[in-house]
Design a protein around this nucleic acid. Structure first.
Lengths: 165, 165
DNA sequence: GGAGAGTTATTTAAGTTTTAACAACGCCGG
DNA sequence: CCGGCGTTGTTAAAACTTAAATAACTCTCC
């Protein structure tokens, strides 16, 4: 007698199912919207924009690849491709890491900084229009709290590698 | 004297910026997580799974392409590719629409239904583990409300076409 | 009834992401 | 010091998505 798949799964309640539907709609629509907005106004998708933002906030506008990947919640592989593209645009460049011969730093060029500064107002406006100008301050707090809880349950450790405990 | 780009944009407050960061982390981690879970357990990404769900809930397990695209919040182009792939797997098939010679219906095959039924428990468990088992009932309500508000501000009309008013 | 405009779905090409594999280096214990 | 194991970043190939163009059809209005 096995105990696998034996129990009836706990399906979602009506409220949960509804919330889930709302969540899926809202998140896909927003991501789509921001992708298009940034593609149009800055020539890059939202994720790439996020990378520039991360770099712009880092100490000397530079970060180790792995750290950048972790901050942006993407795999190192994806980051490699993204940085390659941004490098072609002249917005980012790579340099060897002094302390670790394997390491690479990505850094934001002056041109990249300019692109970012030019794109930022439009992007913030889009985010505002979609979220923060529509929610009450209480709701903003609730959203942060909810997302925090979700993130806690999802933090990966080996973002790229086979799932070795 | 032009009035374009003249005003300093309203940047996000600290609370807003924090909430936005949380949102981005949570949503990208979750989407990633579900994609992997479904890819592993059902051999398809989350979006494709969503298409099967939509079809399974539709009247005779079939929907017009456009309607399906709207429900799933994706472009018709993307849907075409997705259905082509699902068709190769034998999980979905197309048929001509009786009332409109341009139209196509996608319908879920018996095999597709079986795949869906086999994948559903694991998927629900993953969604539960990530969200609904972590949030209070109040938070679930808040989440639904917040996402609803967001969606209202984002509903597209011509999801695929050039943005003609 | 037919021209013009809009709709439906697909296709092609280019861009992005994933997966798995890999080369190169760092670190630790014997 | 060196063998094994983990880490860092990249890459090739396959899968997926996007953007733009297109064929086929419907609808409206004169």
């Amino acid at each position: 007698m096995s105990n696998e798949a034996a129990v009836e799964p706990r399906w979602l309640s009506d409220e949960e199912q509804y919330a889930w539907q709302c969540y899926l709609h809202a998140t896909t629509l927003l991501e789509d919207h921001l992708d298009r907005q940034l593609q149009r106004d800055a020539g890059m998708p939202h994720v790439y924009y996020g990378l520039l933002v991360q770099l712009s906030r880092a100490p000397r506008r530079r970060l180790r690849m792995t750290e950048l990947a972790q901050n942006a919640k993407i795999t190192r592989s994806r980051l490699s491709h993204a940085i390659a593209r941004l490098e072609k645009n002249g917005w980012v460049r790579r340099e060897n890491c002094a302390s670790d011969k394997r390491g690479q730093n990505a850094y934001l060029t002056d041109e990249g900084m300019r692109v970012l500064e030019k794109a930022a107002p439009g992007h913030v406006a889009a985010v505002r229009a979609a979220i923060f100008d529509r929610l009450s301050p209480e709701q903003v707090g609730q959203l942060a709290e909810i997302c925090q809880v979700m993130t806690e349950g999802l933090q990966p450790q080996g973002a790229d590698l086979p799932w070795l405990r």
